[in-house]
């Protein structure tokens, strides 16, 4: 049977997979993919709470909408930063971006 803890465990595992990507990958875009998975896990949490704790709260759907907005914003600003960094240092590898100065 599906219950709130089951959904939260699935979301926790998804968050852990995203965390592995953020910590273990050297490429900026792969790190962004990890962040996307972590935000996806947060959305799954919210949907789980909406279903099993407050199913009649329509306003709860807006938390998920805000998270989707955050994902889109993260992608837009992240890609812009990658383009800027690539133009400057000709690489998108995080290990090569260890200095904040030019």
């Amino acid at each position: 049977m599906i219950s709130l803890p089951v959904v939260l465990v699935a979301a926790g595992l998804m968050f852990a997979i995203g965390l592995y990507g953020v910590l273990g990958q050297t490429n900026t875009i792969m790190v962004m993919m990890g962040v996307e998975l972590m935000l996806g896990a947060a959305m799954l949490n919210v949907v789980g709470f909406l279903r099993y704790s407050w199913p009649d709260a329509t306003s709860g759907a807006f938390f998920v909408l805000i998270l989707m907005t955050l994902m889109a914003v993260e992608a837009a600003v992240g890609f812009a930063l990658v383009i800027s960094a690539f133009r400057h240092s000709r690489t998108a590898e995080i290990d090569d971006m260890h200095e904040l100065k030019g």
């Binding site: 926790g12 852990a16 997979i17 965390l19 592995y20 099993y52």
Partner: peptide, 28 residues
């Protein structure tokens, strides 16, 4: 190290999710 930390976080979140007494109020 990344894999170890991710596994630890995953297990920690799963344990918290299972052991916490969440409010359950399925209406429909």
């Amino acid at each position: 190290r990344s894999a170890s930390l991710a596994v630890a976080v995953g297990i920690g979140l799963a344990v918290v999710a299972v052991l916490t007494d969440w409010p359950a109020r399925v209406v429909g």
